[in-house]
Amino acid sequence: MLTLECPYCGVQADETELSPGGEAHLKRFGPGSDIDDFEGYLFMRENPKGVHFERWRHAYGCGKWFLAARDTATLEVFGTYPAQTTEPPQALREAISAKRPGWRWRDFA
């Protein structure tokens, strides 16, 4: 069972209270953009064994989107943070580095 802390309510939300929203930190490439960028935005997803960043929505609670960092292999949750950001907060990255030295996810490390 996955339990994530909603950064808005501060509630320890059970997986059944949340709805998943796929990968976090996607940059949108819309009409008029390069075809490869568009393809990447639309289809290319990370599928790591290890550190991963995801979007989640506190669907049965406050209804807000937030982002979470977790390990796909062990289900260990490193932390959650509000969705109004384009990159993981530094403190969280350091916390992940302490537990998974040398981790890398897209452009973040």
Binding site: Y60, G61, C62
Partner: peptide, 10 residues
């Protein structure tokens, strides 16, 4: 106050 689900509903 807690918003959550009861059984299958919000």
């Amino acid at each position: 106050l807690r918003r959550t689900r009861l059984g299958q509903v919000a």
